[in-house]
């Protein structure tokens, strides 16, 4: 369904664009407090209203997009950067000690949800956006490692790999030359899905104070700030929440659309 891909790309693109624009322009300066204009409902001057300090919600959402997207993207980078080579190596040494070691390591990391990793890191080193990146990134590693290994194992049994081995190519070279190009589609699709999960995870972590710290704006903390005020100013919770939902929805639609477009038989994992 090409429609999913386009709708997803438009939604995601909107927020990426908002994040990029925020580097040069936001409707209001959010560091300047404007107490007289606090808790305004959406209106002509402040499209999404203002918070309890009179800060413009739209501007904060634009800046928050920056944090969310950066954290999730870097976490996907960590996951792919470590997970794909580990998965390739495990598949290349299938059934041997290295494979076993990597897979048991993966199982172990799977037992640590990213929130738990974030709790550990924060308790030890203090809070910050970097913690969120590391916590979500570590969580992504086994996802990519397992997926890579599974897909690569399927390929290692294929005759074209045997043909490459017959002419004496090393397993590292075969992994790069033959395996990687054939799993690239799968990785792109899974990367999109992990990106969307990263946005959700970052929001959760900053909501409970384990993510980006003030004054860095983030969607999760905007929601935490909104919590006590939600009955008198529902817009405080509504708009940041919608931003998360639409970004994640956009990425998921894009992932599904990409899969259908690239290769409908790709098996991605979603959890």
């Amino acid at each position: 369904m090409r429609r999913n891909l386009i709708l997803g790309a438009v939604l995601t693109g909107t927020f990426v664009l908002a994040a990029l624009v925020s580097f040069v322009f936001t409707p209001y300066d959010i560091e300047a407090l404007d107490i007289p204009n606090k808790l305004q409902p959406p209106n002509g001057a402040h499209w999404f209203g203002t918070d309890h300090f009179g800060r413009d919600i739209l501007s904060m959402i634009m800046l928050g997009a920056r944090t969310s997207i950066a954290v999730a993207l870097l976490a996907v980078g960590i996951g792919m950067g470590l997970g794909i080579p580990l998965g390739l190596a495990a598949a290349a040494r299938h059934g041997r000690a290295l494979d076993e070691f990597i897979m048991r390591g993966n199982d172990l990391i799977f037992a640590f949800p990213s929130l738990v990793i974030a709790i550990l890191i924060t308790a030890t080193f203090g809070a910050g956006a970097v913690n969120a990146i590391i916590a979500i990134g570590i969580f992504n590693v086994p996802v990519f490692a397992r997926l890579t290994r599974g897909a690569a194992l399927g390929l290692w049994g294929r005759d074209f790999i045997l043909a490459a081995r017959v002419v004496g190519k090393s397993s590292a070279r075969i992994s790069v030359e033959h395996i990687l190009p054939n799993i690239a589609n799968l990785m792109i699709v899974q990367g999109t899905i992990q990106f969307s999960l990263g946005i959700l995870a970052e929001a959760g972590l900053s909501y409970v104070g384990l993510g980006a710290q003030p004054p860095t704006p983030s969607w999760g903390r905007m929601l935490a700030d909104a919590q006590t005020l939600v009955s008198i100013a529902p817009h405080l919770a509504l708009f940041p929440g919608m931003a998360i939902v639409l970004t994640v929805l956009g990425l998921n639609l894009m992932g599904d659309g990409l899969r259908d477009w690239l290769d409908p038989r790709l098996r991605v994992v979603r959890a």
């Binding site: 294929r158 005759d159 074209f160 045997l162 043909a163 017959v166 002419v167 004496g168 033959h178 190009p181």
Partner: peptide, 18 residues
């Protein structure tokens, strides 16, 4: 080694599709 080559069974799996 170049003196020894092979042809496999599966005409679909014998080549890197990329």
């Amino acid at each position: 080694r170049s003196g020894l080559q092979v042809v496999f069974q599966d005409p679909y799996g014998s080549f890197n599709p990329r």
